[in-house]
Amino acid sequence: MTTPISLLRTVALLAACVSVMPDVALADRGRLLATGGATQLEGAAGGGLVPWAVLSGYATRDGYGATAYATRVEVDDYALDSGGVAFTARNRIEVSIARQRFHLGTLGDALGMPGATISQDIVGAKLRLAGDAIYTPWPQLSLGVQHKKNRDFGVPSAVGARDDHGTDVYLAATKVFLGGAGGYNLLVNGTLRSTEANQLGILGFGGDRGGRRVVGEASVAVLVDPSLAFGVEYRQKPDHLAFAREDAFRDVFVAWFPNKHLAAVAAWADLGSVATLDDQRGWYLSLQASL
């Protein structure tokens, strides 16, 4: 199994970027700590697995913000690297680009392709429709898209995927209930996603058992203080390839926001059955740098 050197290298690069431009005139850090969330697997502001309605970084309606992230998930037989950048304008729209690299691990060995990987590019946009997760009585509501292009379509095609690209559309609602968990702040997020993606798109889009469907995703977190949150996430997924069952993803996480430049998330993730190999569990580590 590969080591997380690439993750460390990416984070070192992010840290270097942030340290040389700590006071870019455009960067607005006017929002409260942790309100930009972390960065989820496909590059949008969110938890670890689920995109939230909050926009990346700390820009208010009066400014601009940017973030970069690197994530590694390492489960029994596979690993996934994900990294990218996001830009938010006036707390209204977030645009992001990300690349995922999935390490076939055990399955690669079994297929006679040791060390094989499948990569995917994702371009995302998220529009805040209404609300503020903290300050309005109703939730913050955002509409997002994630356009994905699989760069190594050989294996996905061989197992029955129809397309090498697809677009997810999601609606996310996020609300922070101040004092909502016995006096501690409670964050609740629900996301509905229309998607054709098999295993995020790593195994292509659509299959011999169907195409687009709507799935539900949810996150619940308790902030024990403004910089530390504990939570759980759940992400339903389609199951459109006959060759292997696809399960929901879920995790238990701790997120740390030491300041407005850095966020770190560590999680224990259960990815279920992935490409015929069951019970894929392991750790998830993500770092995000903000301007």
Partner: peptide, 21 residues
């Protein structure tokens, strides 16, 4: 399995905190 227990444990904490205001 372990992650299920963890999920339930965390949920239990969340619900307990929410319930004993």
């Amino acid at each position: 399995n372990a992650p299920n227990r963890l999920v339930l444990f965390t949920l239990a904490i969340v619900l307990t905190l929410a319930g004993c205001a």
